[in-house]
Nucleic acid binder design. Structure first.
Length: 254
DNA sequence: AACTTTATTAAGTTTACTTCA
DNA sequence: CGTGAAGTAAACTTAATAAAG
């Protein structure tokens, strides 16, 4: 017999009610309920998590327990059950989050590859225009010598049109402050002007609709460039607090 | 309607034990 | 083998709420 049991028996001999109330022993000197008692309680809990007073008294009588003990067991059981439920839900949420995060990462890589490709094609187009401009510039000089004033005017207009055709790409490439044409860093495409021009490339020719599309794309782009701390995810209670960051990651999906 | 009493619940804590390094 | 930390189950406390008188 343990010290606790001896103590309990001693108290019970003096004041059985007090012993029951203040110790962890029941009236049969059991600290824990028997397997049979637990089994019956579990079965009842499965059918209803809250016990009607009449059923409580009946179950208590069947198990040789006080109704109060049955009530307390149900209280504790509900608490344990709830905490298990929370744990399960948390794990499901965590799994969903991880799946989305990896999906996000692969889409981010795909986007970067596409932007690089666009960048390369842009340079190619610019080169072609440059060659074309040099070639046409020489021809204009020859024609100017033998043409009338009227014809010169027409040629001048054509040249202006050609220059304007080239200019957008030039503007795109001249935005860098390092003086190098198209001198953007591969890992830093969040420059507003550059991105807007890329978007115009994508959505150009649709007028207001293009502007609307660009506005939809905007939050996603800025988000993509500021997600460096994604890898730091820890499975703790702050899981859902990630939503309070400046750039909610789910904006990407909107 | 405003109040007291009683019962019930969730949430948090205490107690006494077991397990394990 | 003794010991202390961690985990667990039963019981308790407290505050909130609702129903009855």
């Amino acid at each position: 017999m343990t010290e606790g049991e001896e103590y309990c028996l001693a108290r019970m001999s003096v004041d059985p009610f007090m012993a029951m109330k203040k110790s962890n022993y029941n009236k049969n000197n059991q600290r824990r309920f028997s397997d049979e008692q637990i089994k019956s309680l579990e079965m009842m809990f499965e059918s209803e998590t809250k016990l009607e007073p009449r059923k409580k008294v009946q179950l208590a009588r069947e198990l040789g327990l006080q109704p109060r003990q049955v009530a307390i067991w149900f209280q504790n059981k509900r608490a344990r059950w709830k905490s298990k439920q929370l744990e399960t839900e948390f794990n499901i949420l965590k799994q969903n989050y991880n799946d989305l995060a990896s999906q996000f990462e692969s889409l981010k890589k795909e986007k970067q590859a596409l932007v690089s490709e666009l960048h390369r094609l842009n340079e190619e187009v610019q080169k072609t225009h440059e060659e074309k401009r040099l070639c046409c510039g020489d021809q204009a000089a020859v024609v100017a010598l033998s043409s009338t004033d009227h014809e010169s005017e027409n040629e001048e207009n054509t040249r202006r049109e050609q220059e304007e055709e080239v200019r957008p790409e030039m503007e795109v490439c001249e935005k860098g402050d390092d003086g190098v044409l198209c001198g953007h860093h591969n890992d830093d495409y969040d420059d507003g002007g550059y991105n807007n021009d890329i978007k115009r490339e994508y959505f150009g020719g649709f007028g207001e609709e293009a502007d609307h599309l660009m506005n939809i794309v905007e939050p996603a782009d800025s988000c993509l460039t500021s997600s460096d701390d994604w890898g730091g995810f820890k499975s703790n209670a702050n899981l859902l607090d990630q939503s309070s960051s400046n750039c909610p990651w789910w904006d990407f999906w909107s």
